[in-house]
Amino acid sequence: MMINTLRQQQTIPEKMRFFLGIAFTFFIALLGYFLAMVPGFSLTGQLASAILIAIVYRQVAGYPEWLRKGITFSSKKILRFAIILYGIKLNVSLILQDGLPILLFGALVITFAILSSVWLSKVMKANTSITFLLGAGTGICGAAAIAAIAPIVESKEEDTAIGVGIIALFGTVFSIGYTILRPFLPLTESQYGVWSGISLHEVAHVALAAAPGGETALAMGLLAKLGRVFLLVPVCFLFMYLMKRKNAGTKQKVAFPWFLIGFILMSLAGTYLLGPIIPFSESATNVVTEITTWCLTAAMVGLGLSVSLKDLKDKALKPMAIITIVSVVLSIFTFFIVKWFY
């Protein structure tokens, strides 16, 4: 029966299999959307839920080879498209006018998160690739940062998927922890917002944690977080330069991350063109945000299908321990910085 199924799959035109592969990733993204509505899974969100479904599917049914081209398109091309769209979240004008001190905080956070993660990976002999990606995700902007940096540093697809899944889970846990601790913390609304923005993993996590602190906390939190998103571009170019130096003298070339140019252009368009010149409502922005989420989720499904449970067990445990340490220390460290200097 399996042979007959394989024969039937081979009779499907290649172009049709390509589009079916893309549709397959969006279908699992849809399943992740519904799974995220289930109590318990609602804490992890659509992205992590979809990756979990993809990993389970891989273990049970194996990798759908006949759909590989479409799945690969999602995990590479649609991923870059999602990162470009992500740029609309960044208000360049706001950062340049009011967020320069917060940019310095952000640079400090990114440096600490990446360097401490890499150092601990050597001390604990953990998987360097996953730990580095987790450090970048923790320091900058979660899954989007991992997705942007992974191709530059030539990380394996399974390492990228594992990193994204872990960062989504940890960001959710920490943001919930912040909301629980908030009433007991000696911070003003503004300080609490800045603390959330410079220490939590993703924009959604910052919004989740800062919103209960009031409008001021939410506004300051998002400003601080967008400062770190702003730094994604220079960090990516820095690692592209380091990879070129590493590969100097070899035939291996580092591909230029053209999608970052799209990210910059989208940020500039969202700041100075869409709204100020071209009518673009908040609801339209929300639509773009939703499209970004779905594209990013479908892309992560493509990566998740390449993960085996054995790899997850062998590779992920030590990086998870490291990112726990880094995230806790980062939260404490930034708490005192905000308390004393902001």
Rank of each mutant, 00 (worst) to 15 (best):
Val288Asn: 08
Val203Ile: 11
Leu296Met: 14
Phe230Val: 13
Phe256Ala: 09
Leu274Ser: 05
Ala210Met: 00
Ile198Ala: 02
Met220Tyr: 11
Asn286Tyr: 14
Ala299Asp: 07
Met300Thr: 10
Asn247Asp: 14
Gly193Ser: 01
Val301Met: 05
Leu226Glu: 06
Val254His: 03
Arg245Cys: 14
Ser306Met: 15
Val287Pro: 14
Trp294Cys: 07
Leu265Ala: 09
Ala209Leu: 00
Val288Trp: 08
Met240Lys: 10
Glu282Arg: 13
Phe239Gln: 03
Val307Gly: 04
Leu273Glu: 06
Phe256Ile: 08
Lys251Val: 14
Ile278Asp: 12
Ala209Ser: 01
Leu232His: 03
Ser199Cys: 02
Gly302Cys: 06
Val254Ser: 07
Val233Thr: 13
Leu232Gly: 05
Cys236Arg: 09
Gly214Met: 01
Tyr192Arg: 03
Val254Glu: 08
Phe256Pro: 06
Thr292Arg: 03
Asn286Trp: 14
Ile278Lys: 11
Phe259Lys: 02
Ala217Met: 01
Leu268Asp: 03
Ala284Arg: 13
Leu238His: 13
Leu208Val: 09
Phe259Asp: 01
Ile291Ala: 11
Val301Trp: 03
Met240Gln: 09
Leu200Gly: 00
Lys225Pro: 01
Pro257Lys: 06
Leu268Val: 13
Gly214Tyr: 00
Leu242Met: 15
Ser199Gln: 01
Tyr192Ile: 01
Pro276Ile: 07
Ala211His: 11
Gly197Pro: 01
Glu215His: 08
His205Lys: 01
Leu268Trp: 03
Leu273Trp: 05
Lys246Leu: 10
Lys251Gly: 15
Gly249Leu: 09
Pro234Glu: 13
Ile198Glu: 02
Leu222Glu: 03
Gly213Arg: 00
Leu274Glu: 06
Met243Val: 14
Val203Pro: 01
Ser199Ala: 05
Gly193Tyr: 00
Leu303Cys: 08
Val194Ala: 08
Pro276Val: 10
Glu282Val: 11
Thr216Lys: 05
Leu242Ile: 14
Ala209Pro: 02
Glu282Gly: 07
Pro257Glu: 08
Phe263Pro: 01
Leu208Tyr: 08
Phe237Pro: 03
Leu274Thr: 02
Ile277Ser: 11
Phe256Trp: 11
Leu200Val: 00
Phe239Cys: 12
Phe256Gly: 11
Cys295Arg: 10
Phe263Asn: 04
Glu202Tyr: 04
Ile277Tyr: 06
Trp294Lys: 08
Glu215Ser: 08
Leu268Ile: 12
Asn247Val: 15
Ala269Arg: 01
Glu202Cys: 04
Thr289Tyr: 13
Leu274His: 04
Ala224Pro: 02
Gly249Cys: 09
Ser281Ile: 10
Ile264Leu: 05
Trp195Thr: 03
Glu282Phe: 03
Leu265Val: 09
His201Trp: 08
Ile291Leu: 12
Ala207His: 12
